[in-house]
Amino acid sequence: MIESARLRFQPDDEPLFAEDLVNLDQEWVESVRPDFICPTPSCDARVVAVLTRTPPRRRTPHFRNHDGVIHQDDCVYAAGRVDIHADGGEAVDPDTGLSTYASRLGRRTVRTVTTPDTAAGPLGPGSNGHRQRTRGPGSSHVDYERRRTVYTIRPLCRAFIDNVYQREHMIIDVPEITTTSSYLYAFKRLWRYDGQLEPRVRIFYGELRYRDRAEETDETTTVWLHAGTRENRYNLVIDHADWTAGEVRAMRRDLHTALAEAEDCVRGDTYEKTWAFFIGRQDTDRPATFHITDSTRICFITATIEHPQRVRPIR
Rank of each mutant, 00 (worst) to 15 (best):
A159Q: 08
T52W: 06
G106Y: 04
D218N: 12
Y210M: 01
D162W: 03
S99W: 12
A262P: 04
N232H: 15
R200E: 14
Q132I: 09
D194F: 02
T302Q: 15
R213N: 13
E219Y: 07
E272A: 14
E14Q: 11
T304F: 12
A159V: 08
P15Y: 07
A102K: 00
R252E: 13
N65P: 04
F63S: 09
R189S: 12
S42C: 09
L255M: 08
R111M: 15
L236R: 06
P308R: 09
G80Q: 05
R200G: 00
T302Y: 10
E3N: 12
G129H: 02
R230G: 11
I161M: 01
R81T: 14
T118Q: 07
I238D: 04
E272R: 15
T221M: 11
A258I: 05
S4H: 08
L16F: 15
G129V: 01
A186I: 05
M1S: 09
C75E: 08
N163C: 02
E176H: 11
L197D: 07
P313M: 03
V32T: 08
A288N: 15
T180Y: 02
E261S: 15
R253I: 06
V311Q: 08
H256Q: 14
V150T: 10
T178I: 11
I70V: 15
T178L: 08
D117P: 00
T52P: 00
V82Y: 08
G268F: 05
T217L: 05
E216D: 11
T109Y: 14
G246V: 01
D218L: 13
P39G: 03
D13F: 11
V82P: 11
R133S: 04
F278C: 09
R59C: 08
G206M: 03
L123F: 13
H85N: 14
G68N: 09
G121I: 04
V237W: 01
G97P: 09
T52K: 15
G88P: 07
H307M: 08
R146T: 11
G106F: 04
Q309Y: 04
